[in-house]
Amino acid sequence: MNIHKKFFSKIGFNYLILAISSLIIQIIVINVVGMTNRSLLNNFNILTILSAICNYVLPFPIIYFLMKKLEKQNLKKENISVKTFLFYLSVTFTLMWLGNIIGLGITTAIGGIFHTDISNPVQNLINSSDIWLNLLLISIIGPIFEEIFFRKLLVDRTIKYGARVSIILSAVIFGFFHGNLSQFFYAFLLGGFFAYVYIKTGKIIYTIILHIIVNLMGSVVSLFVAESAQALLSNTFTATNLVIVLIYLAIILLAFLVGIIGLRRYKKAKFNGSKTQISLKNPIKTMLLNPGMVCFILFFIGEIIYSLIR
């Protein structure tokens, strides 16, 4: 195995360790809380908080320590205009919707074949937990940590192989790390695009804000829109309900049109501030067909299968 495959294998094992560590931490924390006060585990909001602590806060030192051992390269920093940011936001929404449609179509088809309902764990979390928890954990805490985990720490170490290698690897790892088929496709698409934005700007704050906005739309704004839409269907609506639904539909339509146009630019992207230092003869094979990445992918394929059959 050459040095480049060894490098990507280390990355694969690092993120596999992150996943396993999160599970172990979660088991320990849940058991400790259960022994202290069993009734707390019956509170869905408490479980949501514990999940965020176990998945983001406590594992952070582990992945930081592992990735710090790999040499990093600082990206060229560049400010972007409000117009460019809104353009990026439109592409983000478009990729999210496309990914959701693909995921919904595939999970519906699988559910039809096996005569079972395949639920979306994040949607269940959003519907079951307090809206303020959704705002804090899903819309703010989650995006901050995920952008550090899957963009900052990852891209800084892989950019020497070129922007496209970093983008593909970020997309693959971010997509699989969600651990279920419902989220895989939009996480894959968004993971790649956020890596693109980070490489273009060199500033993780832009992808954090994009991530916060898209999660905010899905976890908080969607609840208000759903309530208004339900009111319209039941003929108990007010003018406010109608305005909320119309504004939401207008935003979707405008963002989708701009996003579709923007995807053409994304496809032909050039990264003037990021030069490829190491050219790989077979980048996909080198990135993915190595012990670390194979173990990582197999682990999450197993988790995805388990989420489908349980």
Score class of each variant (00 low, 15 high):
F184K: 00
G273V: 04
I53M: 12
I118L: 11
L40V: 10
L23M: 12
F13D: 04
S182A: 12
W97T: 04
T94E: 11
N241Q: 02
F188W: 09
C54N: 14
R264P: 01
K281A: 02
L16A: 02
F150R: 00
S119V: 09
I199L: 08
F296G: 03
I173Q: 11
V122F: 12
A255T: 14
V221Q: 01
F149L: 03
N127F: 00
V220R: 08
E146K: 03
I46G: 00
L189N: 07
A187K: 08
P291S: 05
I168D: 03
G103K: 13
K160M: 09
I110S: 04
Y15W: 11
N124T: 08
S21Y: 13
N14R: 01
I46F: 15
G111F: 08
F114G: 10
F85S: 03
I20N: 06
F149T: 00
C54P: 07
I144L: 10
I260R: 04
T276M: 12
I101N: 02
A171H: 06
S119F: 05
K83W: 07
F60R: 12
S9I: 14
I27H: 07
I204R: 02
G12K: 02
L136D: 13
I141C: 01
Q183H: 08
F145N: 05
I260N: 06
F60K: 12
N180W: 05
I305D: 05
N14A: 05
F93E: 03
L308T: 06
L289Q: 10
I46L: 04
L308P: 02
I138C: 01
L136S: 12
S9T: 14
K10M: 04
I46T: 09
A231P: 04
G259R: 02
I244H: 00
I30E: 02
V155A: 14
G192N: 06
L58S: 06
L40D: 02
F296E: 09
S129K: 04
V57F: 14
L66H: 04
Q26E: 13
G192E: 06
I131N: 10
N55G: 15
A52L: 11
I309Q: 01
F65Y: 11
I138N: 08
M67D: 10
M217Q: 10
I53V: 15
K275M: 10
V197D: 05
S9D: 13
V57L: 14
S119L: 07
F87N: 11
P283K: 08
M35V: 09
I30R: 02
V57I: 15
G103S: 11
I261D: 05
T84H: 02
N100K: 01
K69W: 06
V245W: 03
L41D: 02
V243E: 07
Q277S: 12
I30N: 01
C295N: 09
N180R: 15
M1L: 06
Y88R: 08
P61I: 11
G103T: 11
D156E: 15
M35N: 14
I106S: 05
Q230I: 05
N14P: 00
H4S: 05
I244Y: 00
L23Q: 03
M293E: 12
F85T: 03
I46Y: 13
I208F: 01
I102N: 06
I126P: 00
I148P: 10
I138V: 15
D117S: 09
N235K: 10
T92W: 13
G192L: 07
V221P: 00
F85K: 09
Y15K: 05
I80V: 15
L308K: 08
L246V: 11
I27Q: 06
L125M: 12
